[in-house]
Design a protein around this nucleic acid. Structure first.
Length: 324
DNA sequence: AAACGCCGCAACCGCCGAGGT
DNA sequence: AACCTCGGCGGTTGCGGCGTT
């Protein structure tokens, strides 16, 4: 059996509300309170469907609604909550006093979603989209600057725990290694950083003069990183194993200085990457916002966001069990 | 100044679950 | 148990404002 319409649509007005209609609705609700939406339009003398009245009240006329631009804190909260709850706009709205689900949904679709896409972040999974933007960054950081961090990025993408499937498909990995081969054949492609790094590698190789053994386990991978002795050649060695042998290092249990929060977002330039990783206490997920609030442009906002969007949600600001 | 396209947001639509009869 | 109503939710649409050509 088909469901009966919520109201008789014949003769009922649709479209934007007039100030007179708003006043009638507000007056009625002030006297009788919200609820019984089916009969409300008739009792209030409105030629509207009850559903339309409810939406107008909850999304626009309610006295506790906060209007105006979203603050940085609100935006940050939305992104954090969305990463946990997905498109549960009402649940997100419940955590943002004065904001409606409709408003948050609109803001997400028109601002946040687009910004995440521009930054190469999938707005659904909140994971980097290597298929669009990240591969070249990972490769350049790997070859030129910080192979350890680049590999962690890569292995993270391969082994992402909240994905049902890896973000990187085998074809992309083949492309990655092909590019590396080209790079090895044309070392001049890279910057001074690369040359500097190569010198260090050469020195290191002369000192060690060893053949890298195959990696047998995740433990070995972790020990390698935790030991801090992680040259570009070792990184390359690892990457080849990832590609050729299907070795998939598990970084989820890492507690070393190269933990996930120390990995610079891959869309940063190589120079920024090196600088940031070298900062021992670099904390990209900082919730302090003073510098950002004074930045008014979207570009500044985006630049700032690029450093904190790749974050682990701080427990102090978000109690997940409470939400669930 | 006019035409055009883009963007943001209010409002609508269809579906669903809870609760009542 | 089946049916119905109601309120709520998420996705989508359409219009008005604004910027660009």
């Amino acid at each position: 059996m088909g469901r009966a319409p919520c109201c008789d649509k014949n003769g009922l007005k649709k479209g934007p509300w007039t100030t007179e209609e708003d006043a009638m609705l507000v007056n009625y609700i002030q006297k009788h309170g919200p609820g019984n939406w089916r009969n409300l339009p008739k009792n209030a003398g409105l030629q509207r469907c009850g559903k339309s009245c409810r939406l107008r009240w909850t999304n626009y006329l309610r006295p506790d609604i906060k209007r105006g631009r979203f603050s940085f804190e609100e935006e940050e909260t939305i992104i954090q909550l969305h990463s946990i709850l997905g498109n549960k706009w009402s649940a997100i709205a419940a955590r943002l006093p004065g904001r409606t689900d409709n408003e948050i949904k609109n803001y997400w679709n028109t601002h946040i979603r687009k910004r995440l896409l521009r930054m190469g972040i999938d707005p659904v999974t909140h994971a980097p989209r290597i298929d669009l933007l990240d591969l070249s960054s990972i490769l350049s950081s790997y070859v030129c600057n910080n192979p350890a961090a680049a590999l962690l990025n890569l292995s993270n993408l391969l082994n992402s725990t909240h994905q049902q499937q890896p973000l990187v498909n085998p074809e992309m990995l083949r492309l990655a290694t092909s590019l590396l081969s080209i790079k090895q054949a044309n070392p001049e492609m890279c910057s001074q950083n690369y040359n500097l790094h190569q010198n260090q590698i050469s020195n290191s190789q002369e000192q060690n003069n060893q053949v890298l053994p195959p990696l047998q386990s995740n433990d070995q991978f972790q020990n390698l990183i935790q030991g801090g002795d992680f040259s570009a050649d070792m990184a390359k060695h690892l990457m080849q194993q990832i590609n050729v042998e299907g070795f998939s290092p598990n970084i989820t249990n890492l507690s070393c200085p190269l933990s996930q929060e120390n990995i610079v977002p891959p869309n940063l330039s190589a120079d920024h990457h090196q600088t940031a990783v070298s900062q021992a206490n670099y904390v990209p997920c900082s919730t302090t916002s003073g510098t950002y609030i004074n930045s008014s442009t979207e570009d500044e906002k985006e630049s700032y966001c690029s450093s904190w969007l790749k974050f682990e949600i701080p427990e102090s600001t978000l109690d997940i069990s409470d939400i669930m």
